[in-house]
C-alpha cells in the first residue's frame, strides 16, 4: 500500500527518504538501503557500557537493540545497534534514526505507523521482512510515550 497523498503530513526528512527510495528502481532501492545500513552510527559510549539499558526488538529476525531519549527540549534521540551480519535490520534502524532526527516527541508520535510500508521497500525486501521496521517504529513510539509520562 502506498499512501502518496499523506506525504504532506510527514516530517521533512521522512518524506525525503521516501521520495529518494521511490525514485529508484526496485533493485537500486536495496543499494540505498545498504547505504543507510552503513551509516548507522555507533552507540554513544554511555550505552556501550550499559547494554541493559537497550531494548531488544523481538519482531526483527536479527538481534537489534534500541534506546530512545527525549531531551529537555522534547527532542527525540533514537539509538540503535545491530550486528554487521544483519545489514537489512541496520538499514531499517538507520532510516528511522535519520528520519526522526531532530523531531519532537509529539512529531514522532504522529508519524504514521505504516510509514515503513510506504517507502517502496516491500517489493525489494518482501512484506514479511518489512515488519521488522514497523516493529522498530512501534517500539520507538512506545518508549517515547513512556519517557513522556516518566
Amino acid at each position: 500500500m502506498t499512501t502518496e497523498d499523506s506525504g504532506a503530513e510527514l516530517p521533512e526528512q521522512l518524506a525525503q527518504i521516501r521520495e529518494d527510495f521511490l525514485a529508484l528502481a526496485v533493485r537500486e532501492r536495496l543499494q540505498l538501503l545498504l547505504e543507510f545500513s552503513n551509516e548507522l552510527p555507533e552507540l554513544p559510549e554511555r550505552y556501550l557500557d550499559h547494554p541493559d539499558l537497550l531494548e531488544r526488538v523481538e519482531e526483527c529476525q536479527s538481534p537489534v537493540f534500541i534506546f530512545v531519549e527525549v531531551d529537555d527540549a522534547s527532542i527525540v534521540h533514537l539509538y540503535a545497534t545491530a550486528p554487521k551480519e544483519a545489514p537489512t535490520t541496520r538499514g531499517f534502524a538507520s532510516i528511522l534514526a535519520q528520519g526522526l532526527a531532530g523531531l519532537t516527541a509529539e512529531q514522532v508520535l504522529a508519524v504514521p505507523d505504516d510509514y515503513p510500508n510506504t517507502i517502496g521497500l516491500t517489493e525489494a525486501v518482501s512484506p514479511l521482512r518489512i515488519r521488522g521496521m514497523t516493529a522498530l517504529l512501534g517500539r520507538t513510539k512506545r518508549q517515547v510515550r513512556e519517557k513522556l509520562v516518566a
Binding site: 545498504l34 529476525q61 551480519e85 545489514p87
Partner: peptide, 9 residues
Amino acid sequence: DEDVLLYET
C-alpha cells in the same frame, strides 16, 4: 541468505 542485503555487503 536470510538477510536480503548481506550479499550486497
